[in-house]
Design a protein around this nucleic acid. Structure first.
Length: 787
DNA sequence: GACCCCTTCTTTTTT
DNA sequence: AGAAGGGGTC
């Protein structure tokens, strides 16, 4: 394989290292994906490692697919040379297909490449029945995976109905978050209680946690967190099970290691070491290879901890001095961005304290200056972005070269409007996922019930849509009866006699429903997912219901349901396993990003989190305003680690751009209902002004702007003098964002937000060194300084 | 049991 | 601004 010439010395070192632990600190755009794919190919080709002994963890399903694709290409090329002595492209299409099919079957398909969640789900399909959970909790191999709304619903039931807690004090959402955090840190309920300290509140959360796990087990369901944490518990409980997987996966690779949480780390640690003490480790024919960049750690809200990356060498190395260099490779050459863009990124991230020593060196020329634009409001910002983008497109660029990145999903709205007004094709990643749409969930829950009828949440949903005369009262009654009988809802529903007695007139539709599900269950093991789906769509009455409705909305829903059918068909064509189980797993673990089609001629819109790992020739990074980015939640408690994470997020955004980067912010933004003045992000102030071009701040014109949708936007709003300062003579002083003030106690600061209105007006003021404080201007003396 | 209207609440990032 | 939940009516 012609590997070597394409790699720089550090990349080659990473690719060719064979056994033992290795940490690859890979800066943005330093070619880590190439290193990962080449390494896997190299392990197989040069060291004769069997593909099914390799476990590679990626951050998204899409990344997994691409990695397999690229490895397949490498092998196809090699095979073409070996078999025909020609380049792959020089072969006839018959020969190409022959090679591809063989490569796929022998080398690619046996690889275990996927996200933590997908890989763990796969392991659990084999071994979950061997797990004896605490309190007798058991799961069966046909478990369902609860999505976020299923989980939320369950928490509401437990907190409000079962524990009768005050949902003001114990908001189901926040209890759910605490339980999730506990799992991500690898804490069971008792360990959680210990870690949190024995307070009334943590005792309650612990009890809810226990009850929640009972519910999951009774529904034969897992949540996202359990998908990873349950294998960890299983491995600890059953050493022979761990031993099997440990023997099986001789070479483990983990991408985006900086965004790993404790439970994921523990899983990797167990698989790599077989839970044996350091003295018994044997690296003679195995490796653990992780790639990451602490500067791009952006998932601490989901308990990811980049110290795990920083600790890698002491965790897995043997601690000897020369091991420190043997177990580390740094990739510090950036092949992606222009030198100008990279300089800006480096300057920004230098403001963070918690870092690994690393410099990113540019390999590309300076390129175009980075631009900064100040807009009047979010609509003007969107208009600017779109008109600018159209200009660039005319200069020999295609739509797919552009990405518009932002901090929160809600920011997409004005941009979408501007794009569609101008007829620019775009795709939006995130927001409402296809699989989260009501009609899709409605149909899918039939499949989930067929797969696992113990899943009462899906069962209840399927019972109620389409309407068949089974209402909330009936369901509540039957559920209560099932609870009393200590049986599942499904078991109760299946006994016709009991149903007739319990449900009276409503029993007929219930019995009919149960027979329908049972019929499909009998077929389910030998029938393709799409065929079961077809029957559900036709015979559940769902489509009929939508057709009868005849509204525009129901038309859309119908289209989506039919789209789901083609999703299922496509899934069967592309994957080895077209079973209902495989399809459901795929659907449950799909992220919106997985559908991003690189080939499509469209502008991409997404959050900065979703943009991780991607690159675009032209990037618009918008909404750079204090409170939005950095987000006010990170500003709130003067928590510097939260600000540093926001800064890393900004760094991720900047480093997505290859050639052209356009930053922007609005002086005024409507967000969450009302209009708020805004000031430029502190991150922009951390950059030297000479690095930012075109930053001429434009002031709001005195007259109301033309913003009629059908009109083209003002090409370049003429610079207008600042609006005259208002309210100088008002009895109470007027305040504006950006005002510099002195406070008797805190000194000089700058107003960042004006909250509320007189007489209940508060100011958020940022005092250098002291952080942000919310102040009531009537209670303290504030003096306004002239700007 | 189903539907409609009103109020209230909540506003980050996601596998 | 938008969703979701509650309460009232048919």
């Amino acid at each position: 394989m012609a590997v070597t010439p394409l790699l720089n010395p550090d990349q080659r070192k990473a690719v060719e290292s064979f056994c033992g632990p290795l940490l690859v600190v890979a800066g943005a755009g330093s070619g880590k994906t190439r290193v990962l794919t080449y390494r896997i190919a190299h392990l197989i080709e040069t060291h004769g490692v069997e593909p099914d002994q390799i476990l590679a963890v990626t951050f998204t399903n899409k990344a997994a697919g691409e990695m397999k694709e690229r490895i397949g290409q490498l092998f196809s090329e090699g095979q073409a040379q070996a078999k025909f002595g020609k380049a792959f492209t020089a072969l006839s299409s018959g020969e190409q297909h022959q090679i591809q099919a063989k490569v796929r079957q022998d080398l690619i398909q046996p690889l275990w490449v996927g996200t933590f969640h997908a890989l763990c789900a796969r392991i659990l399909r084999f071994d979950i029945e061997k797990f004896d959970g605490p309190n007798g909790r058991k799961w069966q191999r046909n478990f369902n995976i609860f999505d976020e709304s299923d989980v939320q619903e369950l928490f509401k039931t437990i907190v409000i109905k079962e524990f009768n807690l005050d949902d003001k004090k114990y908001a189901p959402r926040s209890v759910r978050f605490m339980v999730s955090s506990a799992k991500n840190r690898g804490l069971d309920p008792q360990e959680y209680l210990q870690a949190e300290g024995n307070t009334p509140r943590s005792r309650v959360v612990t009890q809810v946690y226990e009850r929640y796990q009972d519910h999951l087990a009774r529904n034969n369901a897992l949540d996202f967190d359990d998908l990873i944490w349950l294998p960890v518990q299983l491995f600890r409980q059953q050493p022979q099970v761990l031993n099997y997987w440990h023997q099986r996966f001789q070479h483990i690779l983990v991408d985006e290691y900086q965004d790993t949480n404790r439970s994921q780390y523990e899983l990797i640690r167990l698989l790599a070491t077989n839970d044996k003490p350091r003295s018994q480790w044997d690296w003679s024919n195995r490796s653990i290879f992780v790639v990451g960049d602490a500067d791009q750690a952006i998932y601490s809200f989901r308990q990811a901890d980049f110290r795990i990356l920083m600790d890698f060498q002491s965790d897995f190395g043997d601690g000897e001095k020369d091991q420190q260099t043997k177990t580390l490779v740094k990739l510090e050459e950036n092949y992606r961005s222009s030198a100008t863009i990279l300089e800006l990124a480096n300057e920004l991230i230098a403001n963070n304290v918690e870092r690994i020593d690393k410099v990113l060196r540019a390999t590309r020329p300076a390129g175009t200056p980075v631009q900064l634009y100040e807009a009047d409001d979010e609509v003007a910002e969107a208009e600017f972005i779109v008109s600018h983008l159209r200009q660039l497109e005319k200069q020999n660029r295609s739509w797919k070269d552009f990405a518009i990145l932002y901090r929160v999903n809600a920011q997409s709205q004005p941009i979408e409007q501007a794009l569609s007004r101008w007829g620019v094709p775009y795709t939006i990643v995130g927001g409402l996922r296809f699989y989260d749409r009501k009609e899709i969930k409605d149909v899918l829950c039939y499949l989930k019930v067929i797969h696992n009828p113990l899943d009462s949440i899906s069962l209840k949903r399927a019972l109620s849509v389409p309407k068949r005369g089974i209402g909330k009262t009936t369901i509540d009654k039957l559920e209560a009866a099932a609870a009393t009988l200590e049986s599942s809802l499904w078991e109760l529903l299946s006994e016709e006699e009991s149903i007739k007695n319990l449900a009276g007139r409503t029993s007929a539709p219930i019995i009919q429903f149960v027979r329908f599900i049972e019929r499909l269950r009998e077929q389910s093991s030998q029938t393709l997912a799409s065929e079961i789906l077809e029957t559900v769509i036709k015979e559940s009455g769902y489509v009929a219901m939508l057709q009868e409705e005849g509204t525009e909305e129901s038309e859309d829903r119908l289209t989506n349901v039919l789209e789901l059918r083609s999703v299922a068909q496509r899934f069967e064509e592309e994957s080895e396993d077209g079973s209902l189980e495989a399809f459901l797993a795929n659907v449950s673990l799909a992220s919106d990003l997985d559908n991003l089609d690189d080939a499509a001629e469209r502008v991409s819109l997404m959050t900065l989190h979703a943009a991780k790992g991607l690159e675009f020739p032209v990037v618009f990074l918008c909404g750079l305003e204090d409170g939005l980015f950095p987000h006010f939640r990170a500003l709130q408690d003067g928590d510097s680690s939260a600000i540093e994470e926001e800064r890393r997020l900004c760094y991720v955004g900047i480093t997505r751009a290859k050639e052209y980067l356009q930053l922007s912010y609005a002086r005024n933004r409507r967000l969450y209902g009302d209009r708020q003045p805004a000031i430029m992000s502190q991150f922009l102030k951390e950059l030297s002004p000479e690095k930012l071009a075109g930053a001429t701040p434009r002031r709001r014109p005195a007259a109301t702007q033309t913003r009629t949708p059908s009109l083209p936007p003002a090409k370049r709003p003429a610079p207008v003098r600042p609006a005259p300062a208002q309210g100088r003579r008002q009895p109470s002083q007027s305040w504006a964002v950006g005002d510099r003030v002195t406070h008797d106690q805190f000194g000089t600061g700058q107003v960042t937000h004006v909250l509320g209105a007189e007489p209940k007006l508060f100011l958020a003021i940022s005092f250098p060194g002291l952080g942000k404080k919310v102040i009531d201007p009537r209670l303290v003396t504030l003096r306004k300084l002239s700007n």
